[in-house]
Amino acid sequence: MIELIRNCSHGNQIATYLAEDNEPGKLILKVTTAFSGIQALKREYKGWDWYQSLRYPEAEHPFCKIIRDKASYIKLQIKYIEGIIPDHRKGLINNAWVSDKVIEHYCRIWPYFKDRRVPLHGDLSIGNIIYNPAFGVNIIDWEYFNFDGAFWGFDALHFLFELLWLSMRNRKLPTKDEVDIITRNIRLLNTSGWLDAKIIKHPLLFVRNFMRENTKIWTEQIKLSPDKFPILNFTDFQISAIDNIIEAKFK
């Protein structure tokens, strides 16, 4: 039997189902008949293909398949991942273990190209992480995937600052402990030396400006559901203050 678990949430036009009694085990099905939804699911298919080829290059069966592909209807089948979906309401401090693991995962998986952009997840947030003690971090929901989408580190920084925004709620500035976690993770991200020095100086400003300058990646959803992109809600004052605190910590 099939269960509808999400329907056109956050302004997208995709219905998501859980199919439990199938032969290969539990499956996630994603369906849309809308043009923007079809584009998103085609990106998601490419994203899974790219991500799984890095994680499990030897795997015989694809993790994600397009099982219906008509002019105005597409259906995607994705293997169900068992594990914990961390709760963003617990804040950054209680989710520090997740952010450590996600940043470590990003550093291990994401390729670096000296002279061009790297693949973009585009919505790397705590809600799109499933953690399984046996298999580690799994990144899901690749609807904004783009092969040469962003500078190296964008998705990881997006993850950290979105979590920080959700953790700060109505506070203007983060606590010392929150800044410590962010700084620690940026340091971890920088162990490869691939993070641009300008970005280390103004990480939040870089992430916010990249999103503003590349809105076409998220256009539809920014219009329909601005709450989905909390980083765009940071004020200039907050961005400047947070970047200054992080920079001071680095020194």
Binding site: I2, L4, N7, C8, Q13, A15, L29, V31, T33, A34
Partner: peptide, 13 residues
């Protein structure tokens, strides 16, 4: 026109 309306059709497999 809402794309939400047809979600139940998938139950027909």
């Amino acid at each position: 026109y809402s794309p939400m309306r047809d979600a139940g059709l998938e139950l027909l497999e």
